[in-house]
């Protein structure tokens, strides 16, 4: 008796092939100048690759809901760390002062 039936060998090779193709694709797209799109494209491909590794090499495709919850939790916290911190940096240079008559503040007026 085995605790878990092993996966079919070809799934691993197929997964490897897909990951190699995606690596080449991300390298080629990075050499093109996509402007503002370059980062989303590169990260999007990285996310797909990561999902392939997690789902098939790490067997999450067929794992318990608890494992999926654990992964979701860690990704959620990572997202909180990255995005909530960003609320500060994104809004720092915004104009909170109403455009005012700053001639009044010029030196020599008082």
């Amino acid at each position: 008796m085995s605790l878990h039936p092993p996966a079919k060998a070809w799934t691993y090779w197929a997964n490897f092939l897909a990951l190699c193709v995606l690596t080449v694709v991300t390298w080629l797209t990075a050499r093109m100048d996509l402007g503002a799109l370059s980062t989303p494209v590169a990260l999007g491909i990285a996310v797909i690759k990561a999902a392939l590794v997690v789902l098939f090499f790490m067997h999450v495709w067929e794992s318990t809901p608890l494992t999926k919850l654990v992964i979701a939790m860690s990704l959620f916290m990572l997202t909180v760390l990255l995005t909530f911190m960003f609320t500060d940096y994104m809004t720092r240079n915004y104009d909170v002062l109403p455009p005012a008559d700053h001639a009044a503040a010029a030196p020599g007026k008082h």
Partner: peptide, 23 residues
């Protein structure tokens, strides 16, 4: 949010004093 007609004073902190400069 400071009012528009506030007088500017500049403050520089350093170990261990406050330096103030008026316009």
């Amino acid at each position: 949010v400071p009012p528009a007609d506030a007088m500017d004073v500049y403050i520089v902190g350093r170990q261990w004093m406050w330096k103030a400069q008026y316009p």
